[in-house]
Amino acid sequence: MITTFVGKAVVLSNNIDTDQIYPGRYLSLIDPKEIGAHCLEGVDSAISPNFEKNGVVLAGSNFGCGSSREHAPIALLSMGASVVIAESFSRIFFRNAINLGLPLLTCKGANKRIRSGQMLEIDIMQGTIRVVETGEILLCDKIGEHAISILEAGGIKPLMRKRMGL
């Protein structure tokens, strides 16, 4: 499992719901590449085409609220997000993201202290964010043990395959 990333921040507000992450009108798409092209279209359709690989999505509270759609973390992964950082996550989004191997970090106030476009160095296991430009280090909550075990396996699918003896 890759646990450190360097990527550019895209900063969003509170209560970014799954309709904004992935609008309902695209729900019948199943190709991850096509899904990624519409990521965050409900916020700004310019985000996905300009998103750089390993970029960091950084938001306020209750990120991923609303519908249970797994398209939301699929879209973020396919767009190239390495990690999502927020003040808090909605429950279903949290499970979906971890199950698909998308790391999430919970960090109070990071969305107010970091600006879109700043380069960040993220350490998933240590739960740290380093702002390259200023050297400032922000501390996040550590990811729970159960979630780590899923992420380390590369998501719930490889974990289940192992359990099935495949």
């Binding site: 609303g66 249970s68 759609r69 797994e70 499970r95 199950n99 719930i156």
Partner: peptide
């Protein structure tokens, strides 16, 4: 159920909660 509004079923004293597609596969 693969739908966030599965909380509805508390109306009947059941425990209902929404899950995503891959959670559901497990």
């Amino acid at each position: 159920a693969t739908d966030s509004h599965t909380t509805t079923h508390g109306a009947f004293g059941a425990f209902g909660t929404g899950v995503g597609a891959t959670d559901m596969a497990t």
